[in-house]
């Protein structure tokens, strides 16, 4: 039991307790009086909150969609290319592709802020003359692409890990059976990495609600212009601490966190029962 104590205690005190306590707080007001569902009513009923909330949630799902459509397929493509046999120098590519992932969000945010800044004019030479981060139409897609650029290394390395674990025999057997490269991928490789696809999707989904840093770094907590880049993370922060004139409310912050918790839980349950049950992981 001595072995279990430190991990269990730290985890319980600094993670489980705060999460549960946050849930509890969402039913109390800022002075600690029981408030029932008042906070939730405010969040969903009061337009100053509700509009921002639905906007942010919508943006979050757009952000998520970008990662699912771009980051994960690109990561898979790169991983497949990195496991092609008999091509030299693959390790160098692997190192380079993963490099942005090791940079901190602050640095990544700033790099792209500078590069996309109309003041510098780098984008103009490439033929883009809109301030991509300045217009509400383009700001969210641009931020999504920056995030994809930074994090593509994660799905890449995860797919890479399962791909190299597939025995060479299997691939060769299918080639002898008459499969071409595409058929090998469709019939053998892809079904075997399907479980990983699920894991990566759910990690992307969860990570999405953590995507505060980049937006904070590039656009600040108000997530401009005109809240066009506001996502749940920044909305949570503003609700809790307040920003530009408004005062924050811990109780409302806890409420937002609780709602996020439910949204994440819904996703996780969907994954566990809708996906994981149907997709078997095979011993290789």
């Amino acid at each position: 039991m001595v072995f279990l104590a430190p991990a269990t205690v730290i985890y319980s005190v600094f993670m489980v307790y705060p999460l549960l306590d946050s849930l509890r707080r969402s039913f109390f007001d800022d002075d600690g009086n029981f408030a029932g569902l008042d906070n939730y009513n405010t969040l969903f009923g009061n337009p100053t909150f509700a509009d921002r909330f639905w906007d942010a949630l919508g943006h979050n799902f757009q952000f998520f969609a970008f990662h699912m459509v771009l980051q994960n397929p690109i990561g898979l493509l790169l991983a497949v290319l990195l496991t092609v046999q008999s091509v030299r120098g693959l390790n160098i590519y692997r190192t380079i592709v993963f490099l942005p992932t090791t940079l901190s969000v602050v640095i990544v945010g700033f790099i792209w802020r500078l590069i996309l800044s109309p003041i510098w004019g780098v984008t103009e030479t490439v033929g883009i003359d809109t301030p991509l981060l300045g217009e509400s139409r383009t700001v969210l897609p641009t931020l999504s692409l920056i995030s994809v650029w930074q994090w593509v290394g994660i799905p890449m390395i995860f797919f890479y890990a399962v791909l190299i674990a597939i025995p060479k025999d299997l691939i060769e057997a299918s080639r002898v059976d008459g499969a071409g490269s595409w058929q090998v991928f469709r019939d053998i490789t892809f079904p075997l990495i399907l479980p990983m696809l699920g894991i990566i999707s759910i990690l992307t989904y969860i990570g999405n609600f953590n995507a505060f840093d980049l937006i904070y770094q590039v656009k600040g907590v108000v997530a401009g212009p005109d809240f066009a880049s506001d996502i749940m993370g920044t909305f949570f922060y503003r609700t809790f601490f307040g920003a530009s004139g408004t005062t924050g409310s811990p109780a409302m912050g806890a409420t937002v966190a609780s709602v996020m918790f439910l949204i994440i839980l819904a996703g996780v349950l969907l994954y566990m029962f809708g996906w994981q049950r149907r997709v078997t992981t095979y011993e290789l």
Binding site: P167, S174, D177, I188, L192, T280
Partner: peptide, 14 residues
């Protein structure tokens, strides 16, 4: 048009 039997059988697990 040849068939091969592998040492580890290489059966498709899925």
């Amino acid at each position: 048009d040849i068939a091969m039997v592998f040492q580890n059988y290489a059966l498709y697990p899925h």
